[in-house]
Design a protein around this nucleic acid. Structure first.
Lengths: 340, 340
DNA sequence: TGTTAGCACTCAAGTAGCTAGAGTGCTAAC
DNA sequence: GTTAGCACTCTAGCTACTTGAGTGCTAACA
C-alpha cells in the first residue's frame, strides 16, 4: 500500500461518499491531483480491487469502496472535519437547557445528531447501573398514606406512595423502616433481582399486610428494565439515501430500529473502551444491516446516567463529519455532569 | 341513494380495501350478489361517481372510493368486525401486566395495535392534567439533603432531592415547608406556570438560599410538557402500503410522525366527545397526509392518565377491523383504572 | 520499468414502439 | 329498467435499439 494507492483510495472514497455513484479512473485522475493519466490510475485501481479495498458493481462501471476500504479509510486516511463554531455553540446551548430531565435531554441529542448529519440518531441511556441505595425512608404523610423513599448515591430519588387500608401505629412503622434499611442499604439497584425482593417478602410474610404491600411495590420501581432506555430520531433520513431504494430492505431496517432489542444489540458494549467507535457494514453482525454503518461515542454523566450516543446511515457515510460530531457531543454531555 | 347503490358502493369499497386496485363493473356484479349484469352496475357506478362517492383514476380503469365514499361507508355501511376471542384475551393479558408503569403500558399498546392491524400506532398520554397538589412535604434526609415531595390527588408523587451547601436548622425547615404548603396545596399542576413559581421565588428572595434553590427545582419538575407524551410504533408498516410507493410522500409522512408537534395536532381534541372517531384523508387537515386516515379512541384512567390511542394508515384502511379494536383497547385501559 | 494513448469491448439505463388486456360508455334490442 | 354487443381508451409490460460511461489490453514512449 504505497502512498499513491492511498491517495487513489482516498479520492475514490470521498467521491463516492459525495455522489453515491461508482467512480471512474478519469474522475480519480482529475480529482486526486496526482498528475498522472487515467490509464495509470486504472492500473492502481486494478491493484486496489485485488487487495479488496474497492469493488466493481459490473464490468463497465467505475469502482466503489468495499467494507474493507471504508475500514482502511476510517482507520488511516480520514481527516476529521472540524465542527463549525456555530454548530459547537448550538450543541452546547441546547444541551445545557435540558440538563435535569434526562429523557428530554436525550431526545434533544437525537434531534441534533440527526439534523446536523442527515442520518438517523440512536441513543442508549442507562440511569440505573451502579446505583447504590444510600438510604431508605418510610415517611408517613397522613394516616392512610405512606411514602416509600429510596435515595441513591449521587442524589437520585425513587419513591412510591402506599395507600393503606388500615392505619398503622408509629412503632410498626419504625420497625418496618428499620427492617428495610437494614436489608436494602448499600444494594445495587441495577442488580436487585425480583428474586431477592421476593425472598425478603417471604421472610416477613407473617407480618402484617402493610409490609407486604410496601415490598410488592418496591418490586416494580426497581425493575431493571426501567433503567435502560433507547431513543432514536430521523428515521425518515434513511429514505433519502439512494442505497435504500429497495422497499424490502428499507422496511426491515426501519422496522428493526423500532425495536429496543435491536438497538440494545447495536449499541451495547460500545461504551467499553470509552472511545468513539465505528462499525461498518458486515461488522454490525445484523443480517438486515449489511449496508449500514454505525458510529457511536460513549458518554458518562456520573451517577445520573451513562450510555452511548450514535448514528446509523449507509456505509457510504460522511465519517469525517460524523465521528467528530459525536465525539464532541459525548464530551459535552460528560462535562455537563461535572459542572453540576 | 337507494338500497342497490349502497350495495354497489359497499362492494366497491370492501374490494378496494382488500386489493388496492380499481374495481370494475364485472367484479362488482359478481361480488355484490345483486344478480344483475355488469352493464347495470355500470349505470349505478356512473351515478355514484356523479354523486362523488367514487372516482376513476383514468378512463379505462375501474372505480375507487373517494374520501366522501369512505366517509359514507364508515358512517352508514360498515359492519364492525368482531374481535377474535384470542385477540381480546391477548390484549387483556398484556395490558394488565404493565399497569403501574405508564410509559411501558403505552409502548405495549402501540405494539399491540400495530401488530394486530399492520398499521402504525399512535398514542397520546397525558398524566398531568387536572392533577391537584394534595400535600407538600419537605423531608430532611440528613444534614445536607432535603427531599421535596408533592403528593398529587390520586396518589402520584413528585419529588426532588435538594443538596445543601450549608445545613439548615429544623425551625427554618418547618417555616419553609409551611410556606410551600400554603402556596401550593390545591394548585393544579397542569396549570402551574413558570411565572407563578417565579413570583413565589421573587417574593421570598430575601430569605436564605435554601429556599430559593428548592423553588428553582420545583420549576422543572412541574413543567407542563412533562405531563404530555406521545408514542408511536410500526412506522415500517407504511412501507408495505402500495399507495405509499412514492419516496417523497413516504418521507414526509414518516418524518411527520416523528414530531411530537404533529402527533399532538393529529390527536388533540379527539378525546372531546369520548367516542371513537375516524378522520379520513383531507379531513386530517395535514398537507402531507391527504392519503391517510386516522382512527382514534379516547381512554380515561382517572387521575393517573387520560389520552387517546389511535392508528394511522392509508385511507384504504380496514376500518371495520380498526374501529372495534381501538374501542376495545380504550375500554380495557379505562377499566384497568377502576379495578385498582 | 513505469507511463501513456488508443481501441475494442461490455454493460446499464434510457427511449421508442408495439401489444395485450381490462374496463368503459353508448346504442339498440329485449 | 335491463342487457348484450361493440368501438374506444388507456395503462402496463415487453422488446429492440441507442447511448455513453468505463474498462482491460496492447503497443509505443521516456
Amino acid at each position: 500500500m504505497d502512498e499513491r494507492k492511498k491517495q487513489v483510495l482516498h479520492a475514490i472514497i470521498t467521491d463516492y461518499i459525495e455522489t453515491a455513484e461508482p467512480v471512474g479512473s478519469r474522475a480519480v485522475a482529475k480529482k486526486s491531483g496526482l498528475g498522472v493519466s487515467p490509464a495509470t490510475i486504472r492500473n492502481e485501481m486494478s491493484d486496489l480491487e485485488e487487495l479488496g479495498y474497492i469493488e466493481q458493481p459490473h464490468t463497465s462501471a467505475g469502482r466503489k469502496p468495499s467494507d474493507k476500504g471504508y475500514r482502511y479509510y476510517v482507520d488511516y486516511l480520514m481527516q476529521k472535519e472540524q465542527l463549525a463554531p456555530f454548530e459547537a455553540e448550538f450543541i452546547r446551548q441546547s444541551l445545557s437547557e435540558h440538563f435535569s430531565e434526562m429523557d428530554l435531554l436525550m431526545q434533544r441529542c437525537c434531534q441534533m445528531i440527526s439534523r446536523l448529519t442527515n442520518y438517523t440518531a440512536l441513543v442508549a441511556l442507562n440511569t440505573q447501573q451502579h446505583k447504590v441505595i444510600e438510604s431508605v425512608r418510610l415517611v408517613s404523610l397522613n394516616e392512610r398514606q405512606l411514602l416509600l423513599v429510596a435515595v441513591l448515591k449521587g442524589g437520585e430519588v425513587k419513591n412510591r406512595l402506599i395507600r393503606l387500608r388500615e392505619s398503622v401505629n408509629p412503632d410498626q412503622l419504625l420497625s418496618l423502616e428499620r427492617f428495610l434499611r437494614q436489608n436494602l442499604t448499600g444494594a445495587d439497584v441495577g442488580k436487585l433481582e425480583l428474586t431477592v425482593l421476593n425472598e425478603l417478602l417471604a421472610a416477613f410474610s407473617q407480618q402484617q399486610s402493610v409490609l407486604r404491600r410496601s415490598l410488592e411495590l418496591f418490586n416494580d420501581f426497581f425493575a431493571p428494565h426501567l433503567g435502560e432506555r433507547f431513543f432514536s430520531y430521523g428515521t425518515h433520513n434513511m429514505l433519502s439515501q439512494p442505497e435504500f431504494k429497495d422497499y424490502d430492505k428499507l422496511k426491515s431496517i426501519i422496522g428493526a430500529l423500532e425495536e429496543d432489542d435491536v438497538l440494545r444489540s447495536l449499541l451495547e458494549n460500545k461504551a467499553a473502551d470509552g472511545k468513539t467507535s465505528v462499525a461498518i457494514g458486515k461488522e454490525l453482525g445484523e443480517e438486515d444491516m449489511q449496508e449500514c454503518s454505525i458510529v457511536t461515542a460513549p458518554y458518562d454523566m456520573g451517577n445520573d446516567a451513562q450510555g452511548v450516543i450514535g448514528l446509523i446511515g449507509p456505509t457510504r457515510m460522511s465519517y469525517q463529519k460524523a465521528v467528530p460530531l459525536l465525539e464532541f457531543m459525548a464530551q459535552i454531555l460528560s462535562e455537563l455532569h461535572r459542572k453540576d
